[in-house]
């Protein structure tokens, strides 16, 4: 069974989304739900922490593509942190590093919002 978990937590004005396990076409709707909740609550400054994510397919990347513009329109963003090499490689192959900010540590991404 595909094992995926998503949850979010508050860090000052920033919302951290923790993703765990396997993010594919089957589990991507769970991540979409999380983004919909943030938008409903007008929380647009997001850091996605990938520390416990083992796998991502293009369906997962598609979720960020569909939501990032809404966040940016509201003075927010989707920033990424703590990616394993395999996972980062997929973002890299599709050219995401020029479209999004990637950080080694969650704190570095949060600091960016507070500058």
């Amino acid at each position: 069974m595909a094992d995926f978990k998503v949850s979010s937590r508050e860090q000052g004005q920033v919302r951290i989304i923790d993703v765990r396990g396997y993010l594919d076409a089957h589990t991507a709707p769970e991540l979409e739900n999380e983004f919909n909740k943030l938008i409903d609550n007008e929380q647009f400054k997001v850091v996605v922490n990938f520390n416990d994510l083992n796998y991502i397919s293009s369906a997962g990347l598609g979720v960020f593509m569909a939501y990032v513009e809404t966040m940016r329109e509201h003075n927010g963003d989707i920033k990424f942190s703590n990616l394993k090499d395999d996972v980062y490689n997929i973002f890299d192959l599709l050219g995401f590093p020029v479209l999004y900010e990637f950080y080694d540590k969650e704190e570095d991404a949060i600091v960016k919002y507070n500058q």
Binding site: S58, A59, V63, M65, A66, E69, L93, L94
Partner: peptide, 13 residues
């Protein structure tokens, strides 16, 4: 992204 659409990346990848 501008038109808030995901998807379309699988084949390319």
């Amino acid at each position: 992204q501008k038109s808030k659409k995901g998807g379309g990346l699988g084949i390319y990848l």
